[in-house]
Design a protein around this nucleic acid. Structure first.
Lengths: 253, 253
DNA sequence: TGGGTAAATATGTCCGGACAAATTTTCAGT
DNA sequence: ACTGAAAATTTGTCCGGACATATTTACCCA
């Protein structure tokens, strides 16, 4: 029954329930890190259908209080609604500190689509097609595959595509020279993700494998995305190292 | 029907439909101010249930393209995802920037081996034993585990080991103060690897999980390895992005 | 024409069921 | 402790239906 709780006068049932659950989270009955009761249990407790419970849980998710995962459950990630929903993205390591110094060594690239296709970049919300090239990054011997790369280029620069000599190499120099466009901003993301079968096969694996995925978005002056590069570094082969200097004791020790 | 559109490979139906509708809005087929077809009409057009249509429309609403009103209909209010998105990305990076500054302050380390053992570091060729400590990196709440860490310290500095207050924190300050040894170089390696059950369990998972593994080796003056740290960041929690400015052409193009 | 009311329309809330997909658990073996 | 495979669990997707509620439209009347 839970009475003197939250304002659920004539609110819809799912709203009332999300209020109750929110209160429980705030009061610590469901602590951070805990799993909420399963949908089925909540259905039983509140005597409503699964739809109503899911609607309530959706509210909690949108509020950033809960993270839901298929097969796993609903986990409490915050005990009060964060000012920014992004907070629910748990992350972080001290990598930030010097990740900007990251330098990926360039090696040879074998182009798999020498005549660039026009495809949508699945990771983007918009379905606008991009110039699309993919390649395998090779070791110095020119034979051993190291990583699989995809590069999506803004169609505005269509003309230059066929000249692309390598991923992460000189594409931008070309764009800059031909179009006078300068890169203003770069956004980088690193994840561990399973690699598609196709890409995996190119790297010598017959099945899907895990990889470190590095996504980079290059922005132009007006915030327009110029290029997106996606690199898959297979877990068993990927290993990049970099050296850091100790200037100014940035705090990484 | 509509084929050459959007990326709807194996996306859920409601996702495919929201992509299609988004496209129509972007291309002006549904102009700003217009009312979208009613749910019923959309159900008929795409031959799906109302649930699916509503799920698709919810996506458009959350993207800020559409406003829905009971009794009235679904009205187009923007023809492209509002700059809000970019904005949130920017604040995201700012958030991370902030996070990177505060990680060390807010993160606690729970030592699992307060009395350091002497073990070989498996990743090294030599089987010379290292001082060995492991711990769980916790969030500010002191309860939520974020990452699992192992630290191997050169036995030369054995004496200081018990004082280790945290991983990535002050170990080196101690070494420096006591032995006058300065870090000359740091080498970092990132991989995706499965995490052992033991480590995984410490992070709240009862089974084996994948993780981004970060290995760092700290070198002294003569190239001697002073310390090795190994951090496991569970795949589903690890994901960071950041912005890079283009100053001095650091070589990332 | 203006105003009020009823009917039609459109989205909101809610149910019960079914199967799919992801994750965790269990268990046996090394 | 690690590996591998099967079983159990949990959320995700999707259906068809029902009624509630807000808004718009149609219509009648002064």
């Amino acid at each position: 029954m839970s009475k003197l709780v939250a304002p659920h006068g004539d609110l819809p049932r799912y709203h009332q329930i999300s209020n109750i659950l929110t209160e429980r989270i705030e009061l610590g009955r469901y602590a951070i890190g805990d799993l909420l009761p399963t949908e089925q249990d909540l259905c039983a407790e509140f005597d409503v259908s699964r739809y109503t419970i899911r609607e309530a849980l959706r509210r909690l998710t949108e509020a950033g209080l809960v993270r839901r995962r298929q097969g796993s459950g609903s986990q409490v990630v915050a005990n009060k609604a964060p000012a920014n929903f992004v907070h629910s993205m748990r992350s972080l390591s001290e990598l930030f500190q010097y990740a900007s110094d990251t330098v990926f060594k360039t090696t040879a690239i074998e182009l798999l689509v020498p005549e660039p296709e026009v495809r949508p970049y699945l990771g983007e919300t918009a379905d606008e097609p991009w110039l699309y090239v993919e390649g395998v990054r090779l070791e110095a011997d020119g034979r051993t595959p190291i990583a699989f790369s995809r590069v999506f280029i803004n169609r505005e620069f269509e003309g230059i595509a066929p000249d692309i000599p390598g991923v992460g190499g000189t594409i931008f120099r070309l764009i800059e020279q031909r179009y006078g466009v300068t890169v203003e901003d770069v956004e980088q993301e690193i994840r561990a993700e399973p690699m598609g079968k196709y890409a995996a096969k190119l790297l010598g694996s017959s099945t899907r494998i895990w990889a470190v995925r590095v996504i980079r978005r290059y922005f132009g002056e007006d915030g327009k995305i110029l290029q997106i590069s996606v690199n898959y570094h297979p877990a068993d082969r990927f290993s990049y190292s970099m050296h850091l200097r100790r200037e100014g004791a940035k705090g990484w020790v």
